Amino acid sequence: VWDSPAHPYTRALLAAMPSSDPDRRTEKPPISGDPPNPIDPPSGCRFHTRCPFAEPLCANATPKLTALDRMGHEAACYMAVPGSGHSRAPREETA
């Protein structure tokens, strides 16, 4: 998770950590807008309304939690799933 976070919100949370190094301080919030309503969440990915990488796919279908590697890392984000249809998704490996 620390070395290569797969979900944009994990990346944003890590970027929001305070730093005592003046050259590494966050100048602007990594996530803008309000969190989704937990009682009436948006369709598709619950984070798509605030995600800078959201595409129509993200609003239309909820991503499933998908294993990313043999270490047990998982993500529920179309950007992390090979062949999901997201423009930033990794290419599917062909055998």
Rank of each mutant, 00 (worst) to 15 (best):
D3S: 14
D3A: 12
D3Q: 13
D3C: 05
S4A: 13
P5D: 09
P5Q: 13
A6S: 14
A6D: 11
H7T: 15
H7V: 01
H7Y: 03
H7C: 15
P8K: 09
P8M: 06
P8H: 10
Y9I: 11
Y9L: 14
T10D: 15
T10E: 15
T10A: 15
R11W: 00
A12M: 08
A12W: 06
A12I: 03
L13D: 01
L13T: 02
L14W: 05
A15M: 11
A15P: 00
A16C: 09
A16N: 09
A16K: 07
A16Q: 09
P18D: 13
P18L: 12
S20R: 15
D21I: 14
D21G: 09
D21T: 11
P22E: 02
P22D: 00
P22I: 10
R24L: 15
R24E: 08
R25D: 00
T26F: 03
T26R: 14
E27D: 06
E27M: 12
P29A: 13
I31W: 05
I31R: 12
S32E: 08
G33H: 05
G33I: 03
D34I: 02
D34F: 02
D34N: 08
D34W: 00
D34G: 01
P35H: 01
P36C: 07
P36H: 05
P36G: 11
P36T: 09
N37V: 03
N37T: 01
N37F: 05
P38K: 03
P38D: 10
P38M: 09
I39M: 10
I39N: 10
I39P: 00
D40F: 10
P41S: 04
P42I: 03
S43F: 08
S43R: 14
S43M: 09
S43G: 07
S43K: 15
G44I: 04
G44S: 11
C45Y: 04
C45I: 04
C45L: 06
C45T: 01
C45R: 06
R46P: 00
R46C: 04
R46N: 04
R46S: 06
F47L: 13
H48L: 03
H48K: 02
H48C: 02
H48F: 09
T49V: 06
C51Y: 11
P52S: 10
P52K: 12
P52R: 13
P52E: 04
F53V: 10
F53Q: 15
F53I: 12
F53R: 13
E55W: 02
E55K: 12
P56A: 04
P56L: 04
P56S: 05
P56Y: 08
L57C: 10
L57A: 05
L57Y: 11
L57N: 07
C58M: 02
C58Y: 08
C58A: 06
A59D: 01
A59S: 13
A61N: 03
A61S: 10
T62G: 00
T62W: 05
P63E: 06
P63G: 07
P63F: 11
L65E: 14
L65D: 05
T66M: 07
T66R: 02
A67L: 15
A67H: 11
D69V: 01
R70M: 14
M71A: 15
M71F: 11
M71R: 12
G72Q: 09
G72M: 09
H73N: 15
H73F: 13
